[in-house]
């Protein structure tokens, strides 16, 4: 916290009021509703509810595909972080290091940032189409009979690819700005101390990028959990079938698509607790890093 602050007065409350009012109305109230309805089975039209205790929790978590979804969510999240952050870091390092053509490269890599998730999904569906998709053809050429939509594994690969692809520009932009934030004096000093570029990267630059990386980790996990919704939705073509879905998408499937309000509320409460735990851990790490630097 700041050492210097304004003293107590009514001003901070006034400043906070708009955000707190919006949060209370449009977040706390609906989230409270979700918590309440997770203990009820509810008639969707009239809201006549029967209290069922923890039945909704038991029923939804014991369904055969819940464990599978949880597992997929973990794999999906980790893969997106690794692939997307890895490629973006490589690109940012190169974009920072090239002497010529810096700005056209930057522009070409940045503008795709704006692509809407459903649009990314649409392109993905066509690229990975099991009959005419060029990427499926490519996989077949490599000897892999890829059938997105039929094989659980193949669909998972396609989803991860598309979701990670869409996130590359965001990570690229943040990494690049992180690299550009490294003062020139430091670069020159490092160049003298450390001959090998690779060693220079891992011993000097990478630690300096750590706050950025931690921050991006949070952003990417949030993205993989919540913002891939549009990608998955389009890639499933309306039928989940024997295909992987994330836990967030399952909440949507059961609640929004299937009108099982109680079951889907229970799942979102579980999710909320999980994300909360995850966030606290991450937050601590980030805070520490920020102070450290």
């Amino acid at each position: 916290m700041k050492k210097v602050q304004f003293g107590p007065s009514w001003t901070p409350y006034l400043l906070l009021a708009p955000q707190l009012i919006i949060v209370a109305l449009f977040f706390l109230w609906p989230a409270g509703e979700a918590l309440r309805s997770s203990f009820y089975l509810e008639d969707p039209f009239f809201g006549n509810a029967t209290f069922v205790g923890f039945d909704n929790y038991v029923d939804s978590t014991s369904a055969a595909d819940y464990g599978r979804s949880a597992q997929f969510t973990a794999v999906f999240t980790v893969s997106i972080c690794v692939i997307s952050l890895g490629i973006a870091l490589a690109l940012a390092v190169s974009a920072d290091a090239v002497l010529r053509g810096k700005s056209p490269y930057k522009t070409a890599l940045m503008w795709v940032y704006a692509i809407a998730p459903p649009v990314a999904g649409l392109i993905g569906v066509m690229m990975f189409d099991q009959h005419i998709g060029p990427l499926s053809d490519f996989a077949r050429w490599l000897g892999w009979e890829m059938q997105v939509g039929v094989s659980y594994f193949d669909t998972a690969v396609a989803m991860i690819t598309v979701a990670a692809w869409k996130q590359i520009p965001v990570n690229f932009i943040f990494f690049l700005s992180g690299l550009q934030g490294i003062p020139n004096s430091l670069r020159e000093a490092a160049a003298i101390d450390c001959r090998s570029p690779a060693r220079r990267f891992w011993t000097v630059v990478f630690p300096l990028l750590a706050p950025t990386s931690f921050f991006l980790l949070v952003i990417n996990i949030t993205y993989a959990f919540f913002e891939t919704f549009g990608v998955i939705d389009v890639m499933l073509k309306g039928e989940p079938g024997n295909n992987p879905v994330t836990l967030v998408y399952k909440v949507f499937l059961d609640g929004f698509r299937g009108q099982d309000l109680g079951g889907s509320s229970a799942q979102s409460v579980i999710l909320m607790i999980a994300v909360f735990a995850l966030t606290i851990v991450q937050f601590r790490l980030i805070e520490r890093r920020v102070h450290y630097s």
């Binding site: 189409d129 009959h131 005419i132 939509g149 073509k237 309306g238 039928e239 024997n242």
Partner: peptide, 16 residues
Amino acid sequence: AYYGAGWSDNQAPFEN
């Protein structure tokens, strides 16, 4: 042949 749960994935090979 089973081409998954998607409608058009199964229709396309008939069309072509």
